[in-house]
Amino acid sequence: MNLLDSLFYFLSALAIFSAIMVLVSKNPVHSVLWLITVFFAISGHYVLLNAQFLAIVNLIVYAGAIMVLFLFVIMLMNLNAEAEPRKNLWLKLFGILSGGSFLMVLVSLVRQTAELTGKTAQLKDGNIGLIKNLGKALFSDFVVPFEISSVLFLSAMVGAVVIGKKD
């Protein structure tokens, strides 16, 4: 097993473990922290795939901004493990079962799909993930969606302010 493979397995295991911890943590703050770990693992995956830009943007956007926002909200609400609403055990079981069957179905689908056999995702090499190439594509072919997304941001900002305003 070479280094890249072992990194892949390590990061995957870390991500899945952290994701499970997100689900089972009683304390929302712990959930947030575990989710940040997931994001770090996924950023690690991006680095493995040589998508440097996305790796760091993932950190900045998700870990640096979105999760801070979550933390903010949780801290402001002062939510503790006791505040966690109780859920019917049967419903929980049922949820896990349906999620699991979803996973099973899709995995079996992937196993059946012939088009995917032999296809590999290029690790470490390949320069499309570099910021230069991404930037070129973003500002030439995708400039309209880019601008539209800025409008989306603005409207989301306004919306959040309007919703969050007292009365």
Partner: peptide, 10 residues
């Protein structure tokens, strides 16, 4: 799927 389970169970 973990995300789905989380949505369903929490």
């Amino acid at each position: 799927s973990l995300g789905i389970i989380g949505v369903l169970t929490r």
